[in-house]
């Protein structure tokens, strides 16, 4: 299990990285933490010609609150965000979800934006981004664009990022006063990919529920209080999961109904 040969590029600044990306297109792969990409390269499932390592780029190291959102640079590790002192106040849902990503050791290399770029259907961060209606900031030599979460992930391990583009930051909206959130995940073991992960954020009027692990990408639905079982059930069906060796589609739907209910109740309790 050894990677195929590749060129390794360690650009000194973002412009160099973008120039290289423009030049090499889909034969280049941006790598920040490499916790998913590295494993796939070792198995030769991914065989890029050139690996562009952005972990050291100064421009991408920041966590800051900008225009009501927590803007997380593309080189920020999951662990660094988890240790950010303001996180629990600014966005408690993220603080709850981050410890579920992989393990202590992988969170110290794996980045927030890398997880979004990888777009694994069972990952926590794509679910958080979709649920919170965050945004992804993409850069290329052609310019900068901000893509809403709903438009960013287009399928399983597929995103709207063009071949010459890379994520430079992710934007997670700061939690609003009067809202509450909750999160539950069911995995086979601690740290495994979610069989079902359910997150919710709500206020007095409505609640938004997001589910990961079931379909090709996170599913999100807006519901109003009180949430009827039928609505939750329809959502569970609409996600359209399939059987795999770890869980049946039926079990996943059941979890969406049951864990979904737990999460909804938790948000309700927190609001009252």
């Amino acid at each position: 299990m050894k990677p195929a040969a590749f060129d390794y590029a360690c650009p000194d600044n973002l412009d160099e990285a973008l120039a290289l990306l423009a030049d090499r297109g889909d034969r280049a792969r941006v790598c920040a933490g490499g916790q998913s990409l590295g494993a796939m390269m070792n198995m030769r499932l991914a065989t890029p010609d050139v690996l562009i390592d952005i972990a050291g780029l100064r421009e991408l190291q920041a966590i800051a609150v900008v225009d009501g959102a927590i803007e997380v640079g593309a080189a920020v590790t999951q662990d660094a965000l988890l240790r950010w002192p303001e996180l629990v106040v600014r966005q408690p849902l993220l603080a709850r979800m981050l410890p579920w990503i992989g393990h202590y050791q992988t969170r110290q290399r794996g980045t927030v934006c890398g997880s979004l770029a990888h777009a694994d259907p069972s990952s926590e961060l794509p679910l958080a981004l979709a649920l919170l209606r965050g945004e992804v900031v993409l850069r290329s030599q052609r310019g900068r664009r901000v893509v809403a979460a709903a438009d960013f992930q287009t399928g399983m391990m597929a995103t709207a990022t063009a071949d010459d583009e890379m994520i430079v930051a992710a934007r997670f909206p700061v939690a609003q006063a009067g809202t509450a959130s909750a999160f539950h995940e069911v995995a086979q073991r601690h740290g495994d990919f979610a069989i079902v992960a359910v997150a919710a954020v709500g206020d007095k009027h409505a609640i938004r529920l997001g589910v990961g692990g079931v379909a090709d990408m996170p599913g999100v639905i807006d519901l109003t209080w009180p949430v009827a079982d039928a609505a939750l059930n329809d959502f569970a069906w609409a996600l359209g999961g399939a059987d795999d060796q770890h869980a049946t589609a039926r079990y996943r739907r059941e979890l969406v109904r049951r864990i979904g209910r737990r999460v909804i109740e938790e948000v309700g309790d927190a609001l009252s």
């Binding site: 299990m1 050894k2 390794y8 360690c10 490499g34 916790q35 590295g38 494993a39 070792n42 198995m43 690996l51 662990d79 992989g102 393990h103 202590y104 050791q105 992988t106 110290q108 290399r109």
Partner: peptide
Amino acid sequence: EHGSCGACTVRVDGKAVRACLLYAA
């Protein structure tokens, strides 16, 4: 060699990370 078992964990600048998911470079 896919980051799951932890046997290769080393510390890089103080952080415990998987050596199988890092390149020498």
